[in-house]
Design a protein around this nucleic acid. Structure first.
Lengths: 361, 361
DNA sequence: ATGAAAGCGCTAACAT
DNA sequence: ATGTTAGCGCTTTCAT
């Protein structure tokens, strides 16, 4: 029962082909100095015996581990899994990252890190020691964590910072946050909205700022003010509700709201319903991320799609290139996001027969 | 830039503690024959240097790899990821499997296998050779694939067959499919339904049969017939619609339907809407799986929750136990599923003030 | 263009 | 209870 079948090693291949281990190694790694005939003969043996090198052994002798780590925030990830609300960013990372890795013979391993813990560094160092990955993908909010970034930089390990635009070590990969927010704002502007509210994300996520900047920029360009039209949340539905209440409760409420993520948009939608505001009749709504959630909302929400899969794919490619020593001069990438139109945007309320306003018309 | 920081090895620890490599090794692995004093001294050095053994090296010298493979069907998984419809079984497997693995110092790696390929065996053999995992988790429809099962059995590798009840090598882990279907049926029965339709899954999934059996059993026990009340689908929404149309279009249509998965239930829901049948007013509906999808349906669907996370957790534990040589006498596990009540079940249509029936009252 | 030898970090088997 | 030796499967020197 315990007799584990001895698998075929480089020795078997060498013996079968009647060559030295070295030659087999050269063939495996596509190294020069092997005559086509040899190459062919060895390859035949490899195929015949079904030989596949052990990555443990490869790694041991100073070669690659063909492992790429994807670091996610433990608490946030586990919570999202438990909530079962259809948030699928891990799946999208797998879709983009794992498949791209596989294409190049790499493997992606998800690792959850506990940032609250004050031994983050130790924890990460431990993962590196035990797995010796060839590269790492950082996701927000780790992508801009100086401690973490420094650690990988010092380790001389290629790493990608997803959702980060800051300069510094590692490859920064972001979607065009400001541009996307601008796109959303312009979409609303085109519908004739003038008072467009914005629910921002928490300040420890850099992208919160970019998205807000994009909105502000588009408003300014249209000659519109933004005073009293911005509220910050923390990405939770709850906080979206609070922000929406503040926005909609003021003297001159917005006719449209852009929320920095789906959850907060859903929170805003709830508040609209409580206030008997029809979406999109009385209030237009655009959210960021486009997780499955918003497709099933009532009404389905128009959203900026965050291209997580593509981002992860680009990250994987960049890491693999770095591994090959191709010091890709591009140390930062931008992946474009697109606006997915659904049914939460319409002409602004005042443009249609509206209920009498509370005061001053 | 490329100067990869040399990480600390067992040698450094040994030198620092002034002992032999072996002693350090014994401490790491909690082996006997180390005096508490020594143990303490070595541990101090380990902590001080932040030493963590390299799993590559451990694996090389005949020890474990601390890697557990989770095999998923490539096509089905990728399709589900691309569809972005909130189907979260991969996340749930990670939630249950990965966290449990982590608790025991193991790591879970997701691997997608292409069953359509006729070299499945080669593909799997290659993964085994390259990764040398300590165990494998099989998911449907692989759990009952004789070729695959035989391969792992021959390799002497501990493996779990998730969603399988058949005897044979490996640890079979299933939710109580028949029991759950019975539970769903009884729930409907309790509401007074007599004609309860069933949309079965495709026959290549063994659980399709069990679920149908459970329904049939409960009906029989209640003295009710099932003739003309069953239709098979293939787990797609489309097939659910077809099945529902067949069921609802007959002379004596059911007042309630149980669908073997969420997608098919959604298909049935769509048909009900097309036929102007109110759910649950005119038709009660219960689905299987309880993916996020059904929470957001209109109305939210009552469903049997498939406890994927717990199942994966049990699988991981079983594999790890097998690794420890604890030949757990339990070669099969059953994880209970529960019924989540939402708003798609009500009294049967004829029991309430109903629109005049087509004929016979 | 090929092969032989040394060693990666660790543990199993054998001393002591 | 501790240390020594050999070897896991592979790649890197360094020969030839």
């Amino acid at each position: 029962m315990a007799r584990r079948r001895q698998s075929v090693t480089i020795k078997h291949v060498a013996a079968d082909a009647g060559v030295s281990l070295q030659t087999v190694s050269r063939v495996i790694n596509n190294e020069p100095n092997v005559r086509p005939k040899m190459q062919e003969r060895v390859q035949a043996s490899i195929d015949k015996l079904g030989y596949v090198p052990s990555i443990a052994a490869q790694r041991m002798s100073g070669s690659k581990s063909y492992l790429i780590l994807a670091l996610n925030d433990r608490e946030r990830t586990v919570e999202s899994w438990r909530a079962r609300e259809g948030n699928d960013w891990v799946d999208q990372m797998l879709l983009g990252g794992m498949l791209t890795c596989a294409e190049h013979g790499y493997r992606m391993i998800i690792e959850l890190v506990d940032t609250h813990n004050d031994h983050v560094e130790k924890e990460l160092q431990a993962v590196l020691s035990s797995l010796r990955p060839d590269g790492v993908m950082l996701t927000p909010p780790h992508s801009d964590n100086p401690l973490i970034v420094k650690l990988f930089a010092d380790a001389g390990l290629p790493f990608a910072r997803i959702g980060s635009q800051s300069r510094g070590p590692g490859i920064a990969i972001s979607m065009d946050d400001a541009g996307s927010a601008r796109k959303a704002t312009e979409h609303l502007l085109a519908y004739g909205h003038k008072r467009i509210g914005f629910i921002a994300g928490p300040p420890d996520y850099e992208l919160s700022g970019w998205r807000e900047d994009g909105w502000r920029g588009a408003m300014a360009k249209a000659g519109l003010g933004t005073a009293g039209l911005s509220q910050a949340g923390d990405f939770s539905e709850q906080s979206g509700s609070v922000a929406a209440r503040a926005l909609l409760g003021c003297a001159e409420p917005p006719t449209a709201i852009i929320a920095s993520n789906d959850q907060m948009a859903l929170g805003a939608l709830k508040v609209a319903r409580e206030m008997s505001l029809d979406v999109p009749g009385d209030l237009s709504l655009i959210s960021f991320d486009n997780s499955p959630l918003v497709k099933f909302a009532q009404p389905p929400l128009t959203a900026i799609d965050q291209p997580i899969a593509e981002t992860a794919s680009v990250a994987a490619q960049a890491i693999i290139e770095a591994n090959r020593g191709e010091d890709s001069n591009a140390s930062s990438h931008i992946v474009q996001a697109r606006l997915v139109e659904r049914q939460s945007v319409a002409l602004p309320c005042p443009a249609r027969p509206a209920p009498p306003a509370a005061e001053g018309s």
